[in-house]
Structure formats: C-alpha cells, structure tokens
C-alpha cells in the first residue's frame, strides 16, 4: 500500500499546480523508498530510465527549422493565404487535418506530422486565420482555436495508429497475450481498432462543427 504514496503525491502536486517537474521527482523518490530501495538506488533507477528515455527529447530537433521559418514570415504567409480561400473555415480545416492524421497514422506514418513540426507552424495559424478573416478575434478565441488544433492532432494520432499492425501498442498487446498463453494475430487486433477510429472521427468532428457554430454566433453578437 505504501508504494501508492507516489501516486498521491502526483495527484496532490498537479492539483495544487506546483512545478510538475519537482512533483514528479519527489513522487519518484518517495515511491522508490517505499518500495524498499535506498536513496542511491532510487537515483540510479531514475538515472537509468532518464538516459533510456532520451529518445522522447529528439522531437526538439525540429525547433531550429520552425524558428527559422517563423522568423522568415511563415505564419504571416499562411495567414495571408488562408484569407483568400473562402471555402476554408476553422472547422473544415481541422476536420481535414483530423482525417489526414488518422489515415497517415493508420498507414504507420505517425511521425509524419506532429505538434512541433505541423501544428505550431502550419495548422494552428491556418485555423486562426480562417476565423480572423471575419475580423479581429479575442485572445480567448485565439487560444481556444489553438487548443482545438493541438487536440485534433492528438486524437487523430491516437485513434489512427492502432489500425496499423506494426505499431508499438499492437505489438505490446500481442506479446502480452502470448505470454499469457493466447496466440492472436496483430491484424485482428488492428482490425478491431477500426470501429473506435470511426467513432473518434465522428465524435471529434461533431465537436469541431459545434465549435464553428459557437464562433459564428460570437461573430454575429460582435457585429
């Protein structure tokens, strides 16, 4: 039971809005100690895992390219372009990205797009510009559109990638079931991801259309 104290620290820390990095560090040390390790042992386990998980930080390599392009006016160019295409609205643009993200992930190309290389430089500015065409937007609206852009990327990725047979989660399931004595084919696991993938598109798509309606109403009030 004592090993659950780390979870309590995490929940409490996030609820009190303390610096998450500190919360996670403390939770790790407490959990390790409660599990019977020495302090040096905990720091060693933490260190080994930190070094093994460095691949998570590789995504930052993209930032110099994005920074360069933003300095050279990419966001402004995107916004000027979207302003001339009247068929593009915030919801339609995000719906198209949702579909594209789901399909490419389902084909195993989940690194093709992402938050740093796609959402920040292109998708979010396009979604904002599609609404700005009707006049200046409030900061709250801008931030809501950005949050929707980031959410659309996540949802497209999560509920597309499992349709691909060789993705980590499918292989994890196959491996775990095999260890437990059940032989299953990855293709069957992937096929059973399709109903949820369709549901994710319908549900999030509907929410994007609701967002559009809300934006339209706000526009009418402002006028």
């Amino acid at each position: 039971m004592l090993v659950l104290s780390g979870i309590a620290i995490v929940i409490l820390g996030f609820a009190l809005r303390l610096n998450p990095l500190v919360v996670v560090g403390v939770a790790g040390v407490v959990t390790g100690l409660a599990g019977g390790s020495s302090l040096t042992g905990v720091i060693e386990t933490f260190g080994r895992a930190f070094a093994e998980n460095r691949y998570v930080g590789i995504v930052w390599l993209v930032l110099p390219v994005i920074g360069l392009l933003e300095r050279a006016g990419l966001r402004e160019r995107v916004q000027a372009m979207i302003a001339t295409v009247h068929a593009v609205t915030t919801a339609r643009m995000l719906l198209a990205y949702l579909l594209l993200r789901q399909i490419t992930s389902a084909l195993g190309l989940n690194a093709l797009f992402g938050q740093a290389q796609m959402v920040r430089p292109l998708i979010a500015p396009m979604a904002e510009a599609a609404e700005e065409r009707y006049g200046p937007i409030t900061t709250a609206t801008r931030m809501e559109i950005r949050a929707y852009a980031a959410a659309t990327d996540n949802i497209g990725l999560f509920f597309g990638e499992d349709v691909f047979v060789a993705i980590g989660s499918v292989l994890l399931m196959k491996g775990f079931l095999q260890q437990s004595g059940y032989m299953v084919a990855p293709i069957d696991l992937a096929l059973w991801a399709i109903p949820t993938a369709i549901a994710a598109f319908v549900i999030h798509g509907a929410r994007l259309l609701f967002l559009e309606r809300r934006l339209k109403r706000a526009r009418a009030v402002a006028r």
């Binding site: 390790g32 998570v56 933003e70 300095r71």
Partner: peptide, 30 residues
C-alpha cells in the same frame, strides 16, 4: 530562433522524459 522557441517551452521540455522515468520507478516498486 530555435533557442527562442525552446526557452518558451522551458523546463516542460524535460517533463515527458522525466515522466517516462517515473513510470519505470512505479513499475520497479510494484
């Protein structure tokens, strides 16, 4: 420009990696 964006993200840059390590500690402690 890359540094400008990285510093805008700040310490959150190492958070995912730290959380993944916390997962390893949770697993080791059962």
């Amino acid at each position: 420009e890359g540094r400008r964006l990285m510093e805008a993200v700040g310490w959150a840059a190492v958070l995912p990696q730290t959380l993944a390590s916390l997962g390893a500690l949770f697993a080791a402690a059962g």
